[in-house]
Design a binder for these strands. Structure first.
Lengths: 123, 123
DNA sequence: ACAATATTTCTAGAATACTGGAAATATGGA
DNA sequence: TCCATATTTCCAGTATTCTAGAAATATTGT
């Protein structure tokens, strides 16, 4: 997953209402839940719910499918796994998961950090 | 990790600049990088950088330590792992990771979703 | 004590996001 | 066709977040 996609997904989840919506959709499985059910459970004005569902869809986190008068929303597990994978890579890189690469070595010889280390007599 | 904590962390990362900052800090290891180095690399006005660093700190994603005139910021791997754990639980619950629980069964007998399923002759 | 460096806090303007009423759209049933 | 239901789009007001100049703070070297 690219950084831009990850950021979209992060933005999607970075709101109380949207996180709550997503958390309701996750256990609901691939069939999902109709918009109205989400509104009932979260006590949201229809327009507000619709706004957040659009955001989640834009973020690629949920899919939409009409069935009769209702529109069912479902969590996109692939997108979520992609986000987790992205974060895992950006969390473990060179630290917890891999054998701890020497971080300082990767920075420009004259970087501020290196100058600082030198001035302190560190390697 | 609680939902509130997770949301704070998500909000912390849900911004281009802050995600970029965090991505620079991750490979830098526990020693971290001085603020100025981050500013140099990301071409940020000092005040803007400081604002985002404060946000990241408030989100519990980075720690701060003064060393001489510089202030070093470091990624908090524990917080990041906590976030990943939270997302993993909220992604896999009853679906991908566990043996796929019957989602519909968990909803109120008279929920909109159930009414809808009944009206379609589904179980 | 003073000057230079690194960074933060203060502040206000600009940009973006959120909320919800009202109107519009889509569907199914009488 | 007409009505009820489910949901979205439109829109405007409100709130929050972002940006960056200027001033303030902290530290080090002279």
């Amino acid at each position: 997953m690219e950084t831009k996609t990850a950021r979209l997904a992060l933005t999607g989840l970075a709101h109380d209402t949207r996180l709550a919506i997503f958390r309701l959709l996750v256990p609901a499985g691939p069939e999902g839940l109709p918009a109205g059910e989400l509104g009932d459970q979260l006590h949201l004005a229809a327009a507000t719910l619709s706004f957040h569902l659009k955001e989640l869809r834009h973020a690629g986190l949920v899919s939409q499918q009409r069935a009769g008068r209702s529109i069912f929303y479902a969590a996109d597990y692939t997108a979520m796994n992609g986000l987790i994978a992205y974060l895992t890579e950006n969390c473990c890189q060179g630290v917890a998961c891999t054998p701890a690469a020497p971080a300082a070595a990767r920075y420009a010889k004259n970087s501020r950090a290196v100058r600082h280390r030198k001035s302190r007599g560190q390697t």
